[in-house]
Simulated assay, not measured.
Amino acid sequence: MTSLIDLLASAQRTDTGFTTEIPANWLQGRTAYGGLSSALALAAAKQVEPDLPPLRSAQVAFVGPLSGPVTVTATKLRRGRNAAFIQADIMSEAGLGLRTNFVFMSRLESAIEHDTTAPTGFAPPPADAELYTGPKEFFTGNFNFFDLKAEAGPTQWLRWGRLIDRAGLDPEVELMVMGDALPPASLKLFAKMTPVSSLTWQVNILQPAPATTDGWWLLEAETDSARGGYSSQTMRMWSADGTLVAEGMQGVAVFG
């Protein structure tokens, strides 16, 4: 198996990013797992300038399938005193597969301190918990998972997850590769497996330099609208101590 760390270490640098190859163990069907593609795009974006402030937002468009050899490029759109906007694309032989816009922003002095988020109250799985890891030939083989089935709603996934090989990985890159690890919540509406495909992903980072314990992140995805082959879902991510670190939305195509 090829880890994300190995994938980044073996990438060939270019003037605008790097080239690499998506290994089979990071695929979901005929395309790369969306969290991996987003993480690769972020890694390229962070090479544009050496002193970027913390990542605060990402807008991801899953344009087409990505597999095999890929080229990752990043371009600075604008950098002001406080914020930097960087676009990153991933191309394969099939053409453009991913387009992202990342926003990096420094902390600003503000009279406003408003936070209504509350700790989850769910502890990470104990050391002796029975964890799920997917097959080695599928992207889920890179993760450990622990489901909170009893606590999840009828159209909600609630699952602890961690990247197995994460030592030395950039914390923001780890956040991106973890953040899309749940199946689309619309799958809970079907009695059998149904083809789905992520279209867009908007994620806002609430805690600069996110950190957790033992690699565990609590992931949530929930849909309250799915019709006409399109589902919109909200997504959230907490650290092991219950702190909300990211929230977002995703648009999903449902083929059935």
Results as ranks from 00 to 15, higher is better:
1 M>D: 14
3 S>Q: 01
5 I>F: 13
8 L>W: 01
11 A>F: 10
13 R>W: 11
19 T>A: 06
19 T>C: 05
22 I>G: 03
24 A>V: 15
25 N>P: 10
33 Y>I: 09
39 A>I: 13
41 A>E: 03
45 A>C: 13
47 Q>W: 07
49 E>P: 07
52 L>F: 01
59 Q>R: 06
62 F>Q: 06
63 V>F: 03
65 P>K: 04
65 P>Y: 01
74 A>W: 03
75 T>I: 03
79 R>Q: 10
79 R>W: 05
80 G>L: 00
84 A>C: 11
86 I>V: 05
87 Q>D: 13
94 A>D: 10
95 G>P: 04
106 S>L: 07
114 H>I: 13
115 D>I: 09
115 D>Y: 05
116 T>L: 15
117 T>R: 09
124 P>W: 04
126 P>E: 05
127 A>N: 06
129 A>V: 05
130 E>H: 07
133 T>Q: 04
135 P>V: 11
142 N>K: 07
144 N>H: 15
145 F>G: 03
149 K>H: 12
150 A>V: 11
154 P>W: 07
156 Q>I: 03
158 L>V: 10
161 G>D: 05
164 I>A: 08
167 A>D: 14
168 G>K: 06
169 L>M: 02
170 D>I: 03
174 E>G: 09
175 L>W: 01
178 M>L: 14
181 A>I: 15
184 P>V: 09
186 S>H: 04
189 L>K: 04
190 F>L: 08
191 A>E: 13
201 W>K: 01
202 Q>L: 10
208 P>W: 04
215 G>E: 02
217 W>L: 15
220 E>K: 07
221 A>F: 00
221 A>Y: 00
225 S>Q: 14
230 Y>E: 07
241 D>R: 05
243 T>D: 10
247 E>N: 11
247 E>D: 11
254 V>I: 09
256 G>M: 15
